[in-house]
Design a protein around this nucleic acid. Sequence first.
DNA 1: GTCTATAAGATGATAGAC
DNA 2: GTCTATCATCTTATAGAC
Lengths: 197, 197
Amino acid sequence: MTSSETTDSPIERAGKRERLVASAGDLMHRLGVPATTLAQVAEAADVPVGNVYYYFKTKDDLIRAVIDDRAAGVRGMLAAFEQRRSPATRLKALVRHWSDMREVVARNGCPIGTLCTELGRREDGLEAESVVLFRLIVDWAEAQFRLLGRRDGHDQAVTLLAGVQGAAQLSHAFGDPDLMATQARALERWIDAMSAG
Amino acid sequence: MTSSETTDSPIERAGKRERLVASAGDLMHRLGVPATTLAQVAEAADVPVGNVYYYFKTKDDLIRAVIDDRAAGVRGMLAAFEQRRSPATRLKALVRHWSDMREVVARNGCPIGTLCTELGRREDGLEAESVVLFRLIVDWAEAQFRLLGRRDGHDQAVTLLAGVQGAAQLSHAFGDPDLMATQARALERWIDAMSAG
DNA sequence: GTCTATAAGATGATAGAC
DNA sequence: GTCTATCATCTTATAGAC
C-alpha cells in the first residue's frame, strides 16, 4: 500500500488505464462504437494518442474492457437491489433505475442497450461478449419472477427487459425523457398486478 | 412508356439509383450505418465506386434516400393493414409483421429500429428525419387504440411499439428468432385482453 | 450525361526512441 | 516501462476525361 504510493509509476499507469476505459465508455455511448476513434478517446483521457496501444493491443481490446467495466456496474447494481425485501420491490427498483436516468437515456440511449445492439452485429466474437450484459439482467429478473411463484419466469423476465429497452429506444429516438418515465411506471404497475394476482 | 424503353439511358439511370438505395439499405441494416462504406454500396449495386456521387451529393444524401425508401415501405404496410375489419385485428397484424420476419430480426435486428437508434445520435438534422419511421407507426397505432375506445391511446401505442422494438433488440442480441415470436404472441394476447375489457 | 483517376484527410496500428 | 513519430490503409469527395 505505502510502497505503491511512493512510486507514482504504477499509480499513473492504473490511472491512465482507468481513464481510457472511462473515456471510451462515455464516447462510445454518446457517439456509438464505430464512430468513436482512438484519437478522441486518448484526448478525452489526456493520454498521448498512439500510446493507447501500450494499454490495449487493439481497439477491440479497449471495447472488451468497456464491456467488462459495464458488466461490473450491472453486477453491483443487481447486488444492491438484493437488499430490498420482496421480489416485486426488487424488480420495480430495476425498472426505476432506467426511469431515474431518463435524461441520459433520452439524450444518448441506454448505455447497455446501444452497446449490445452495435456489437450484436459483429461476427468476430465480440457480439457474444456484449450480450452478457443483457443475460445478467434477464437471469436475475427470472429468479425474482420465480420467487413470485411464476413458472414462466424466463419469458416474464424477457418481457420486462424488452419493455425497458424498447422504451429507452423510443425515448432516445424521440428525445423525450418523459416517455421513459411513463413507460417505466406502466411496467411497475404490471409488476404490482403480477405479484398481487 | 414505349419511348423510354427504346433509350436505355434513363432506364439505366433509374435502375442504378434504385439499386444504390436498395444496396445501401441492405448493408446499413446488416453492418450499421457508420460501418457501411460507399465502396461497399457501389460494389453491391454494381455501380462504379466514385460514381455514387453522381446520384447522391454526399453519403448523408444516400442515407436520406434510404430513410425515405423505408418510410414508403412503412406507409404501404400500414395501408395494407387498413383492410382488416377491426382495430384489434389491425394491431395484431402489425405485431405479427415482426413475428414473421423473426429470422431477419434475430440476425440483423429490426431494419427500422436499428436505423433510428444509429441516426438518433447525430446532431446534423438526420436524427429528426429518421424518427419519422417510429412516428408513422405510433400515430397509426394510436388511432387504432382510440377506435378501441382507449382515451390513453398514445401511451398504449408507445407501449406496443416499445414491446415490439425491445423484443427485436433482445432477439437480435441473443440471436434467437423464437424470442421475437414468443414476445409477439404475448403482445397479441395483450391486445386481445384490451379489446375485450 | 456518365464514369475514371485521383486527391485530401483520417484511422488503426507499429517501430523504435527515450 | 513509457511515449513519439510515422506508416499503410481506407474513406469521402472531386476534377476532369469520355
